[in-house]
Write a protein that binds this DNA or RNA. Structure first.
Length: 153
DNA sequence: GCCAACGTTGGC
DNA sequence: GCCAACGTTGGC
């Protein structure tokens, strides 16, 4: 079992949206490193920290779970989609996704400021690295536990 | 709205 | 393969 952090802009898709739909195909990732995490490194049942980016304040707002296996992101073949990729062929899909299942909201938002303040306990946390823009990030078991502990402080 | 960081594109 | 131009991310 591994752990991940997924970023989402709440104006695009928030934790409330995930709670409402229950399970969401994580479409639109168009970065190769993030794609590799989704396609190769994730496993059914992995834990997910749900992070609101471009939010005020930015922070972790909920928990979710990876559901099932990787499969082609259908939006890459949809000319009407903003995620359309005319260079991707159905017989060799470039972009893969996973379904993400709602688990629960956190009792409160654990803000980016708070995560920075806990940097000594978190160690090398990819979200806190300068200039990081990846929307899918690996989280260690120790970091996962540290963040859950923060929730109850 | 600004801008730093950084991935991608494309000319050469 | 280099690298300048460009586009995007995302905090502020």
């Amino acid at each position: 079992m591994r752990y991940w952090l997924l970023k989402s802009e709440p104006e695009e898709f928030s934790i409330a949206d995930l709670e409402r739909v229950g399970v969401e195909p994580w479409t639109g990732v168009r970065n190769y490193q993030a794609r590799n995490y989704l396609r190769d490194a994730m496993h059914d049942g992995d834990g997910v920290l749900f992070y609101h980016s471009n939010a005020r304040p930015p922070g972790i707002v909920g928990l979710a779970r990876v559901r099932g296996e990787a499969y082609p992101d259908p939006t890459q073949f949809d000319p009407a989609s903003p995620y359309h990729d005319p260079g991707s062929r159905p017989e060799a899909p470039r972009w893969m996704l996973r379904d993400i299942a709602f688990e629960r909201r956190l009792r409160r938002c654990i803000t980016l400021d708070e995560l920075r303040a806990a940097a000594d306990r978190l160690g090398d946390f990819p979200l806190l690295r300068r200039g990081n823009r990846l929307s899918v990030l690996p989280v260690t078991a120790a970091q996962w536990q540290t963040i859950l502990d923060l929730e109850n402080r």
